[in-house]
Amino acid sequence: MFVLLRQLRTIRREASLRPGDEPRWLAIRHVDAGSCNGCEHELALLGGPLHDIQRFGLDIVASPRHADILLVTGPVTTRMAQPLQIAYEAMPTPRLVAALGDCALGCNVLADRDQLAGPLSELLPVDIRIPGCPPSPESIAAGLLDGLRAITQHPAHSSRVSTTRDRRPPQSGTVWPGHGNHQPKEH
């Protein structure tokens, strides 16, 4: 895999984003709610060796039950509105919603109004907005990190985000909506 290593050596050097110094580990669950697949292509690269989102303490996970952030793409079709809601309800709290791409933000070349339930902001509380059609892998990483930084630094939002520092196991008797036996991950 000489080619891979050489590519990484040259391109990483030019990468503008650097891992921050704040300790954090957040899990992202992606839901495609009717995108053109552009956001998915770019998001998939974000987890690849070039952009390596794990450097920033972020990772894409398979289940909403393990996720802190619901990352939604697409204008939310009528057919995806319910699966999206189910995924959101399956997440432990505190949880965040990120709108990825112009369609999720409700401002792109959308389509037939009858087929759309969105925009996302009318269905779920959107915390992070990442514009672009589609946003490049670097803009997705920057959008997520900037959004998280803004939330953690803003006192009014401090209860909406979970970081390694403030995440504690629930007190006995604490109810985690939707799944009584969920325990938060510990790192």
Partner: peptide
């Protein structure tokens, strides 16, 4: 399939050639 059905064809109808291309 068709969970992502956005009605793009119908949305393009009634538009000029250039305007329909983004759909």
């Amino acid at each position: 399939l068709f969970y992502k059905h956005r009605g793009l064809e119908r949305a393009a109808e009634g538009r000029g050639y250039g305007q329909a291309l983004p759909y």
